[in-house]
Design a protein around this nucleic acid. Sequence first.
DNA 1: GTCTATATCATGATAGAC
DNA 2: GTCTATCATGATATAGAC
Lengths: 251, 251
Amino acid sequence: MTAPYVNSSATKARLLEAAEALFIEHGYEAMSLRQITTQAGANLAAVNYHFGSKEALIHELLTKRLDRLNQERLELLTACEQRYGEDALDVSVVLSVLFVPGLRLGRDSAGGAASIRLLGRVYSDPSPFIRDYLHDHYKPIYGRFFDAFARALPNLPRNELGVRLQFSLKALAGVLASENMDELVAAMCVGEAVIDDTLMLARLIAFIAPMLTTPFGQTEQTNAVKRVMELAEAAATTADIPTRREPSARR
Amino acid sequence: MTAPYVNSSATKARLLEAAEALFIEHGYEAMSLRQITTQAGANLAAVNYHFGSKEALIHELLTKRLDRLNQERLELLTACEQRYGEDALDVSVVLSVLFVPGLRLGRDSAGGAASIRLLGRVYSDPSPFIRDYLHDHYKPIYGRFFDAFARALPNLPRNELGVRLQFSLKALAGVLASENMDELVAAMCVGEAVIDDTLMLARLIAFIAPMLTTPFGQTEQTNAVKRVMELAEAAATTADIPTRREPSARR
DNA sequence: GTCTATATCATGATAGAC
DNA sequence: GTCTATCATGATATAGAC
């Protein structure tokens, strides 16, 4: 019911399809109207006729995908809270709520697993147009999920949670944007009986969750950094002045 | 001694400086020769005269920075192994060895903290030219650090270590590429007496290390994913067909 | 409504005067 | 070494034929 876009010609749909593939492959700046139209078997001017501009095309493309994605995320979070209780959700569950709709998005698309890379592209595309779009369209759900994480991590100050969320999201963006996600996923699940979506998401969450849940103190890391810094300083000085005897060494 | 580049005119140095700033700010594709030359106060043809092409300019820029950076990383790793013993290095120390030279790189550059963003740009730039460059110039040090991590994590199979390293590096790239690294770092260190490099690196390592050290099993995450998936399926079916009883779903 | 042809602009690169 | 002038190419966007 409710076909995705009703008032569109076949070429318009093909343009969206081609644009999505090229966006995933090359990013916003690097994809040209020529590539889009030739890959869609349409005329060069087709994009401007059907959408008005390149930006408008991408905007429609992202809106069609991400707005629905975020809507599903919100509904799923509400459903989880109603089912299990607001304060009973742990970090893994909230992360699942964020990731499961992304997987479902990839399911009904042509690309399949490639649609997850669409998310990675969007998160990491350097074009300001894409950044602004993300900023605007993620604001509404950010606060909602922030609260969910805050309840799952009651001992974490809100400042700290904000920082960790920022880090986690950027780290996730880096992971999703990778060229060879498929190989990574395959290698990730080596030795497992079946490579299904559940396992893949579980591994991804097992990878991201520790960034949020790891305890506070970093005295161990501070000591490590200090020791290495001392060695680096020593090496830098002895590199210029070779007449030195200490075992600190210069290579 | 041995000045970095001896046979260069002043304008060539200014071109490199301007190119670096623009590369950090906008990335490879988005920076134009016109921007570079005007910002350097040079003529439009200056880049092609001094370097031969835009690619050659970036290549020289990156080589000047990253090759030295990686060299310092290798030397520092060797120094650490000699000082503390090959099998005594833990994950935090090896990560420190990777990060400390990056910080020193930023120290003597004009940009200061901006030079860390140079690394982020390089890691996340979508241009194939940059990707190829990274691939070629990081191969030599990858094996060396892989072995170091393998000794620090003796219970981790090599397959698994490879996957986790790939993930960690991509996550790090996502973090470093962020537009607002400065704010993040500031927020990251809120409540601390002094915001120095040591503390910043310690926090970064405390953030990255858990991805490598977190124990194996993900049954908890698998359960979370399964529960959320069930709710998602249920929501999807009831949304379209309110009169349905089976939980198997049709989409 | 759709596509052909074209306009306008910016890019990287080159040739040649000085 | 540096500059001006120019090239060929590819970018987005528009006018107008059918």
